[in-house]
Amino acid sequence: MPLKLKPPRQGKTPNYAIRGTYLGIYVDRTAGTPDKATAQQLLNGIKRAIERGEYEKPAAVEPPREPTFTDAALAYLKAGGAPNYIERIIKDTSAHSLRDKTIATIDQITIDNAARAVYPDAPATTLNRQFYTPVSAILKHAGIERKIKRPKGWRGSKATSWLDPEPAFAVIREAYAIEPEFGLLCLTLLYTGMRLSDPLRARVRDLRLGMSLLYVPDTKNGEPRPVHLPPHLVEAFKAQPPRLARPRKADSVVLADGQAGRSRASAGLPWLQRPADEKLFRFCKGGRLYDMLDLAMTRAGVSFPRRQGAFHLFCHTYGTWMTHFGELDTYGLTRTGRWKDPDSADRYRHTIASPEARRADLLPAPPRRIRA
């Protein structure tokens, strides 16, 4: 077939193509233009180059490779995405692994199978937090807006445990008896609903008692939170005594295990006059701190299963009290800044009977002889 122009193909390409054989040299390439005159000039130039022996076929262009899940994950991390749990997903090499699958082929069934391959025995709440959430974030960053269904039960149980005022105050009293600073920490959690990590990361400079405020610059939600301090909590901060100096071991004296404690910075200084960049509370999140809470609850006669009775019990108590005594609805709880997702705050709606349910008080009363 002689060398000639091929017209554009509707729905395929808007440009002319140059195809055929000239002086034994086969040519098959695009003219790169929809203009016929320009395409003809390019064809004539190819003929002259063949006649001079100077024609070289254009290098073959490899089609772009479809990005894989690993490519998308790396791009997500480079853009500042949260790295939590991604490494374990990428390292999975099972038959259902996502790592080498192109993002366009990852559908709901693929995700479900991969989740169970990475976390075969995990509950739905863990699967959601450690697999579905990061995978969804990576795919959305890559431009895949497919809605991903979360595993059944991923929100966890709506059942909520909380403390009534009398047992709550008993726990606080026992916490102060164990150590005044531990008592103040528990009181702060009770009246602010903060996660344990928030006050433990706070610095002295973040405390603004004149504004009744503790500013938390980095929360789990990823957003700063100005935490309101009620008047009695402000007074508790002002009344906090200085830290005691660390007990020292004297000659021939054996201290009980743990009595010496850890080195206490700023011992003897007024508690609010410590250096601005010092930690607000001296504690670290760990077993020792949880043991202190267990001791306070035991002494107060309060008992909950371990999962329900840890420091998060103060958060549930705060949410319940703000619903019972503060008369906040789900929207109001979200506006406090403690909960970002209304679905999370909605659990406290279940701690009170609805106005509709309370209308049962209007039902006809039974005759006295029935109650006798």
Rank of each mutant, 00 (worst) to 15 (best):
L3G: 00
L3N: 01
K6N: 12
Q10F: 09
N15H: 01
I18E: 00
R19S: 08
G20H: 00
L23Q: 15
Y26H: 08
Y26E: 04
R29A: 02
G32V: 02
T33K: 01
K36A: 12
A39I: 01
E66G: 06
F69P: 13
D71Y: 13
A73N: 11
L74I: 13
A75L: 12
A75W: 10
Y76W: 14
L77K: 12
K78S: 14
A79S: 14
P83R: 15
Y85R: 08
I86E: 07
K91F: 06
T93P: 02
S94H: 05
L98E: 02
K101P: 02
T102L: 08
I103T: 11
I103R: 09
T105L: 10
D107P: 05
Q108P: 07
I109Y: 09
T110W: 06
T110H: 10
N113Q: 15
A115T: 11
V118R: 03
Y119I: 02
A122D: 03
A122M: 04
T126L: 13
N128M: 01
F131R: 01
V135M: 10
S136P: 04
S136A: 15
L139K: 05
K140G: 08
H141G: 05
A142L: 08
I144T: 11
E145N: 12
E145R: 11
I148A: 09
I148T: 03
K149V: 11
K149R: 14
R150N: 13
R150Y: 15
R150I: 08
G153C: 10
W154V: 07
W154F: 15
K158Q: 11
L163A: 04
D164A: 14
A170T: 06
R173K: 13
E174Y: 12
Y176P: 03
L185C: 06
C186K: 12
T192G: 01
G193D: 03
M194T: 00
A202W: 03
R203H: 02
R205P: 02
G210R: 09
M211L: 11
M211W: 05
S212A: 15
Y215P: 00
D218K: 13
D218I: 05
K220Q: 09
K220P: 07
E223N: 10
H228Q: 02
H232Y: 09
V234L: 13
E235N: 10
A236G: 00
A236K: 00
Q240G: 03
R243P: 02
P247C: 07
P247L: 05
R248V: 03
K249A: 10
D251W: 11
L255Q: 07
L255H: 10
A256T: 09
A256F: 07
A260F: 00
S266K: 07
S266F: 14
A267V: 11
G268Q: 05
W271K: 04
P275G: 03
P275V: 07
E278Q: 14
R282W: 08
F283D: 08
C284R: 11
K285V: 01
G286S: 09
L289F: 03
L289Q: 01
L295D: 11
M297G: 00
A300H: 09
V302F: 06
F304A: 06
G309Y: 06
A310T: 02
H312P: 05
L313Y: 05
F314G: 00
C315D: 02
C315N: 06
T317C: 02
T320K: 04
W321M: 12
M322S: 12
G326I: 10
L333T: 12
K340A: 12
D341A: 15
A345N: 13
T351G: 14
A353N: 06
S354M: 08
E356I: 13
